[in-house]
Computed example of a mutant assay.
Amino acid sequence: MDIYLNHTIVYCHDMFASAKFYEKIFGFKFIKVWENFAVVTVNKTLSLDFRDKECFTAQHYAFKVSDSQFDQILARIQHNNIAYGPGPENTYENEINHHYGGRGLYFKDPNQHLLEIITADYILD
């Protein structure tokens, strides 16, 4: 049996606003607030469960997307005037990268989590 990541908790300052941000930018589906979590489905096997917490360390979340999804997400980033850049240390030049024959970019969510979208897997050989 293949093993899949089922969900991960994403700490934030406002779980509802965070869930709506990911829905708006990525096109993920905000399901509902359940107990202490705002649940957003990424795909059939993965959800992001946003949970309010006063203090937390910002994390990095990378999503592999198709070329058309990349274009759609980039358009939503631009439409919402969100700064983005080609690398994790450069999220403000409004440029993308072309690593490994694909496209990628980095931007931050309202909680300062670093988000990455890529169209090609990293080559690790």
Rank of each mutant, 00 (worst) to 15 (best):
L5A: 11
E116Q: 14
I77V: 09
H98E: 12
E116W: 12
Y4Q: 04
D49E: 11
D14S: 13
L48A: 03
A58I: 03
F56R: 04
V42F: 05
A83C: 06
L46S: 11
N97K: 02
R103E: 14
V33E: 15
E89N: 09
K32A: 15
T119S: 12
K64S: 01
H13C: 09
E93S: 10
T57A: 06
G101K: 04
F107H: 08
H79M: 00
F21H: 05
D71V: 03
A17C: 06
A38K: 15
F30A: 15
V39Q: 12
V33I: 15
N36S: 13
T41P: 02
S66Q: 03
F70W: 05
T8M: 06
L74D: 02
I117M: 02
I73L: 05
V65Y: 06
R76F: 13
Y61M: 02
Y22R: 02
D14W: 13
F63S: 13
P86K: 00
V65L: 08
F63W: 15
V33R: 05
E23R: 08
D125M: 00
A38V: 15
Q72D: 07
N6I: 02
A17F: 11
L105H: 09
W34R: 14
S18V: 03
T57F: 01
K64W: 07
A62M: 01
Y122K: 12
I9M: 07
S68Y: 07
N43E: 00
G101L: 06
V40Q: 10
T8E: 04
N36R: 08
I117C: 06
G104T: 04
K24C: 00
R103G: 05
I3T: 10
T91A: 04
S47R: 01
E23V: 04
E116S: 11
M15G: 06
E23T: 09
K44Y: 08
F107M: 03
G87F: 00
N43C: 00
A62L: 08
Y122T: 14
I31R: 07
F30Q: 12
F56T: 03
F21Y: 12
Q59V: 13
L5G: 07
F21I: 05
I82Q: 00
Y22V: 07
K108H: 11
G102I: 01
A17Q: 14
F56Y: 09
A19S: 08
Q59L: 06
D109R: 12
Q72F: 03
F26D: 05
R51G: 09
V65G: 03
Q112P: 13
K53P: 07
F30G: 14
F28I: 12
G104A: 04
N43F: 04
G102L: 05
